[in-house]
Amino acid sequence: MSQRIKFYQTGTLTVGNRLLDAKDRTVQATLDRGNSLTSGHRACQGCGEALGARYVVDAAMRWADNRVVAVNATGCLEVFSTPYPESSWQVPWIHSLFGNAPAVATGVRAALRAKGRTDVKVLAQGGDGGTVDIGFGCLSGMFERNDDVLYVCYDNEAYMNTGVQRSSRTPPAARTATTPPVGNSSGNVFGQGKNAALIAMAHNIPYVATASVADLHDLEEKVTKAMGIDGARYIHVHVPCPLGWGSPPHDTIRLARLAVETGLFALFEAEDGEVSDVTHIRRRLPVEEYLKPQRRFAHLFRPQTDADAIGQIQSIADRNIEKFGLIGRNG
């Protein structure tokens, strides 16, 4: 394929695949698709994580011919997909603890190697809290040892499972249960945030990528590519959460796309510590377009517009666009 075809180029998501040539369709659109994370689980309507995880696990299973062991940190994905009989996993699956999924995955990998089963691949997963907060030490260790594990972080920007408390991925000014706007404070603090993908790159691991449920084809491709690489690999997937973000379930994909189009969430790949590819923004949008539909940012617009806070968020987007070169030559 010379040029990757994006979903939104076809107008709507539902008919998107039908309008494409069969070879360009996502595998999810075919009848012989795998279904490693089955339906019937307990995720909320419009859950970005459930969608992202299905594409990730399916792509990984396809690549490995179904020989995958999944390790899962505590979090929404673990909780909504496991109570019997709503268990959704068609793979050997282990819930570790909140903060130790990378280390448990390291152990699984070592055992498989000791038994000569290098054909079996290890996929470790966690939410943003389990990955970039409590599990960060273990994750860094896994990277440093270059353990042969694909770690996927589903980032919905807060601790949704316990009732929407902030994480170090919560964007500035966002309201959560532990960052209420009090007095002059506008919600979550204006810090530098924690860009886990950049930190992963600083370990010089062979493959790092960011992805979004706004572009499932791109997500599939990145997982497939990561599966073909030996060593520690990291994919950070942006997954909107209707419950925590205060957005309608049908807006999940739209918000994910707006995060990309405003420059707030940069899509890129990095190999051996260097950025190797970025997804350019087609139509640059101001951050208000992304912030306004979400109740977690409602206090920035009512009772009066907090131009200062919005300006600071815009400058974060601007910095991303500059840093990663998100505006292409035609942009």
């Binding site: 960060f136 316990t162 009732g163 408390q165 170090s168 532990t178 009090v182 404070s185």
Partner: peptide, 28 residues
């Protein structure tokens, strides 16, 4: 955050700034 104690933190995040105190949600 941890169930079933998270409401203690949530209430403290609201109450402490009002009395000049400090609430910090830590990384673990």
């Amino acid at each position: 955050p941890i169930t079933p104690s998270s409401e203690v933190a949530e209430r403290m995040s609201l109450e402490l700034p009002r009395v000049g105190g400090t609430f910090v949600q830590m990384e673990d």
